[in-house]
């Protein structure tokens, strides 16, 4: 159940947004992977983070997802996650 995942998540016109700022490790990774493993989720997902999630990347690759870093608010690292084509 994605409702049980840590962090805040909401739907916008460009897809699902997840805010994992200030969560202790490994909650951000759990929140993000929990969403992308949901069968109805095909992306894109926008992640609002407070640091670059370097430990997430191998897990994304293993699941066939890719990431792109885009500018966010000051102090924020914002990523767009999408399935590999």
């Amino acid at each position: 159940m994605t409702q049980d995942l840590p962090g805040k998540h909401w739907q916008e016109a460009d897809g699902l947004h997840i805010d994992v700022r200030a969560l202790p490790p490994p909650d951000p990774m759990v929140a993000i992977l929990g969403q992308i493993e949901h069968p109805d989720q095909s992306g894109p997902i926008t992640v609002h983070h407070d640091r670059e999630p370097i430990y997430l990347y191998p897990e994304l690759a293993e699941r066939g997802w890719q990431y792109q870093i885009i500018p966010g608010e000051p102090g924020e690292v914002r990523l767009i996650l999408s399935q590999e084509t």
């Binding site: 407070d50 640091r51 670059e52 370097i54 792109q68 870093i69 885009i70 500018p71 966010g72 924020e76 690292v77």
Partner: peptide, 12 residues
């Protein structure tokens, strides 16, 4: 895109 907004990832 990669620039200053990447924060301290490389130093970690």
């Amino acid at each position: 895109l990669a620039g200053s907004f990447l924060g301290d990832a490389n130093s970690r």
